[in-house]
């Protein structure tokens, strides 16, 4: 079970709702993924198009726990105001907190992130911060009141997988009791399996599923990879070694003579 802010989930795959070819493919992908948590956003509403009203109906039909983001916010102030609008709109204290520093990398502004996380936690929000693999930022986010951390694997939408695996291992080792969810940069189910094998608690995906040739099939593939990675972590992986080690018993090998051994 994945437990985040006191709520437990069977699925360790959190799915974004953007960029799908159609509303029905989004719905089918959520079902194929077995996702119980979906991310959503807020955007300016036109009085003519009223786009958000139809989307909200679709989200309600999914029946998932909704995790609103503050995507696109550049300052702590913007993120705080957006989080408050999201809380009222979606009726949840959960927020996927993003404070973006740079257009090309979409990397988090860690200073603004910590500032916003502390302010929001102080107002009763349950903050899931989109952060980097940086250990000191993670420590400050935990001190600010975050009981979940969401480090990136690679820049959003880049599909590059785990570009700093050593630092992600360090983060896991330093925070054995904090749920760690990889958010951003995953491209293939093998990336997701790898991070789950490392003991991460979950994976948040969007582009890798939504932009696949067949998003529904890819959602199913990720679900299997994440479940397999988790099972492998629980089973306990063997350590890699430099030299070969025979798996078939040596004792009783036919034609074996002691003076051939080297």
């Amino acid at each position: 079970m994945l437990t985040l802010y006191g709520k437990s989930f069977n699925s360790r795959l959190l799915l974004g709702t953007a960029q799908y070819p159609s509303p029905s493919s989004l719905k089918q992908a959520v079902e194929a993924a077995g996702a119980e948590i979906v991310t959503v956003a807020l955007r300016r509403e036109s009085s003519r198009a009223r786009t958000g009203q139809g989307f909200w109906t679709l989200i309600e039909e999914l029946g998932c726990k909704v995790l609103p983001n503050t995507a696109g916010c550049r300052t702590a102030k913007e993120a705080i105001a957006t989080a408050k609008m999201a809380r009222e709109l979606f009726g949840t204290d959960w927020v996927k907190l993003e404070v973006i520093a740079n257009d090309d990398t979409l990397q988090p502004d860690l200073f603004g992130l910590v500032e916003a996380a502390a302010a929001l936690a102080g107002e009763g929000f349950e903050v899931l911060p989109y952060t980097t693999e940086d250990l000191s930022a993670a420590e400050r986010l935990v001190a600010a009141g975050c009981t979940v951390l969401m480090p990136w694997a690679a820049p959003i939408g880049s599909a590059r997988g785990l570009i700093n695996k050593d630092a992600l291992k360090t983060l896991r080792a330093y925070f054995p009791d904090i749920p760690l969810i990889i958010d951003a940069g995953i491209g293939a189910p093998s990336h997701a399996a790898e991070v789950m094998e490392m003991g991460y608690d979950g994976v948040l995906l969007n582009t890798a599923v939504a932009k696949a040739t067949d998003p529904v099939k890819m959602a199913a593939a990720f679900a299997k990879a994440i479940a397999a990675g988790r099972l492998a972590f629980e089973a306990g992986l063997i350590e890699p070694r430099d030299m070969a080690s025979p798996s078939t018993p040596v004792a009783g090998t036919p034609f074996f003579k002691i003076d051939q051994a080297s």
Partner: peptide
Amino acid sequence: IVAPRQGG
């Protein structure tokens, strides 16, 4: 004035 929208 904002409303729900698709997000990652």
